[in-house]
């Protein structure tokens, strides 16, 4: 039995908190990612913590940590929204840095478009003060498994 698939189904049916899926991934725990759901909307949180600081004199968040957070947010988003039973493989990840990431909590939201059966295109936007002023925007493609069922 696919443990991840069971976990996703339990999350989607409300039996288990979404956070359990995040905590299933070691790298997501390493960054300290949290997920908030409001209705059908998912917001991801990268809580401020010393381990994601880049330049300590500013102090600013490490751009790589923000990118990793956004990539993982997209992966969890695909798992929860598309009924994907396996961790999708990242094909490419492109990020634009728009504003400095200050030492405070960072939020991210995703939107996904499916390209045919196997490819998902995900836009990810991350902000700190308000979502109208993103600090970074990213676009990524992921390879889905054959047996994903959209819903």
């Amino acid at each position: 039995m696919n443990k991840l698939k069971t976990l996703i189904e339990d999350c989607r049916s409300g039996k288990v908190e979404y956070q359990a899926l995040v905590d299933h991934v070691p790298y997501a725990r390493f960054l300290g990612i949290q997920v908030i759901s409001q209705g059908d909307e998912l917001t991801f949180v990268l809580p401020k913590n010393d381990n994601v600081v880049g330049n300590p004199t500013l102090p600013a968040l490490h751009g790589g940590a923000v990118a990793g957070f956004m990539e993982q947010a997209a992966i969890i988003f695909i798992l929860l929204q598309m009924g994907e039973p396996r961790v999708p493989k990242t094909i490419d990840f492109t990020i634009d840095y728009l504003r400095a990431g200050h030492f405070r909590d960072t939020y991210a939201e995703c939107s996904v478009t499916r390209l045919g059966r196997r490819i998902a295109n995900v836009h990810i936007s991350a902000w700190q003060k308000n979502r109208q002023e993103p600090i970074t925007i990213a676009r990524a493609h992921f390879l889905l498994s054959e047996d994903a069922n959209d819903s």
Binding site: K3, L4, H24, V25, P26, Y27, R29, F30, L31, G64, A65, A67, G68, F69, E71, Q72, I75, R86, V87, T90, F93
Partner: peptide, 14 residues
Amino acid sequence: DLVGNPDSGVMHGG
């Protein structure tokens, strides 16, 4: 702790 997929043990793209 840098693994992205616990089933394969592959390091996370991030």
